[in-house]
Write a protein that binds this DNA or RNA. Structure first.
Lengths: 219, 219
DNA sequence: GTTAGTTTTTATACATGTATAAAAAAGAAC
DNA sequence: GTTCTTTTTTATACATGTATAAAAACTAAC
């Protein structure tokens, strides 16, 4: 990590910005799987270990990459007047942006709050919650709940997609559902054959609305 | 993966059950970090690659381990009469069990529905939701929302704990919050100095209640 | 017994992240 | 200039997950 001290010591040949930019190019072009420290080093014209003077480890590199993406989030200017709807729109925007990069799941667990660029969205959610009458403390807790829900949705959905992309083995789930005893688990048995279809539907917004309603009181 | 075909071919010297049992012992005694395929092979008296005839890869091994844990979940027999409260109690039980093993986060992204043993909890949540008047389809979606929220909470909290356990560097968050402009982000600025304290509080139940309220209608 | 077929185990090899220590490239002090 | 200090880069090495292919251990057919 470069100190702001006066110019001394061997001058750097690569910068963190250069590393991140190259990493982003690789990820965009070939996916996160192809991003290795050796490959990245070669592309910036250096050696693998030199990278470690600019980023702590690969995980931090991915977090920085994620920040880079988050900074590009479209902050649509026309916001609904209803604070409740404003919260929904904002959370949905975050989720849409993050879900767009499928490698997110591996990083999302690394940091709950993204960089400066994401704070604007947090502000908007807090503002909506407080306008609905919540105290600042409860607004923070409400934001956290929304973030848990959103992060969970992205991660679980990304994992499911990854599994589907892998190989079409009989699916653990199918085998589990096949053995359901309707006497013991009647509710599950009733929907067992539609489970895959039902869980494949995108109900993020429904759940989000329910959560917001519950947080701020009945609509 | 052992086929149920007639006894033929070289007889196995290790079994999946033996592998999982040994893995659990290692994880319980020394943590998930010390669980390596080589170490595990040595402890079951075999070679690393032999394990791969009984489990697909390390990730699946961890999922199986998680199932093993989930099977031990306490299913407290006295349930509240109020279906709403029954949902809350059940989801909280799942969360408590899973949060008890801190290595969970690395696996949780692997499978949304755990093994047979966890289905009982799913059933209870579905039952509560339907008793509140939701259709079977909406109950499944409601369960998914609860699962997203719960998984997100566990993962984010586990990641935060891991980060804290690592090293006490100036915390990315602190630096981000230090640069907040009260003019631009007033809501955030107002709680900036209490952010760490507020987000450290355990508000899982509050959020869960809000979500359930929102899913089934006002209380 | 010999051969063929099937299942499990082993040996070897490779890619990857990264720890460790040495080397290189600069300015500062003399 | 020479030497010291600081910063960055490089070389080497290791642990890990796992792919690949060969070997081993058994049954069935003849």
């Amino acid at each position: 990590m470069p100190q702001p001290s006066a110019q001394r010591g061997r001058p750097p040949r690569i910068s963190r910005a250069e590393i991140i930019e190259t990493a982003r190019r690789i990820v965009d072009a070939e996916g996160v799987d192809r991003l290795t420290m050796r490959r990245l080093a070669k592309e910036v014209g250096s050696t693998p270990m030199a990278l470690y003077h600019h980023v702590r480890d690969k995980e931090q590199l991915l977090v920085l990459l994620l920040d880079d993406y988050a900074a590009r989030m479209a902050r649509e200017p026309e916001l609904p007047a209803d604070p409740r709807e404003r919260i929904v729109v904002t959370a949905a925007a975050i989720r849409e942006t993050l879900a767009a990069c499928p490698w997110i799941a591996e990083v999302l667990t690394a940091d709950d709050l993204l960089g400066r660029s994401a704070l604007w969205f947090v502000e908007r959610i807090l503002d909506g919650l407080e306008e609905c009458g919540l105290s600042p403390e409860r607004a923070v807790h409400g934001y956290r709940a929304i973030w848990y829900y959103t992060a969970g949705e992205i991660i679980v959905r990304a994992a499911a997609a990854r599994r589907r992309a892998g190989d079409e083995r009989p699916t653990y789930r199918e085998r589990v559902f096949a053995g359901i005893d309707p006497g013991e688990l009647p509710r599950l048995a009733a929907v067992a054959d539609r489970w895959a279809e039902l869980t494949a539907q995108d109900t993020y917004l429904d759940g989000l609305r329910a959560l917001v309603d519950g947080l701020v009181g009945a609509p």
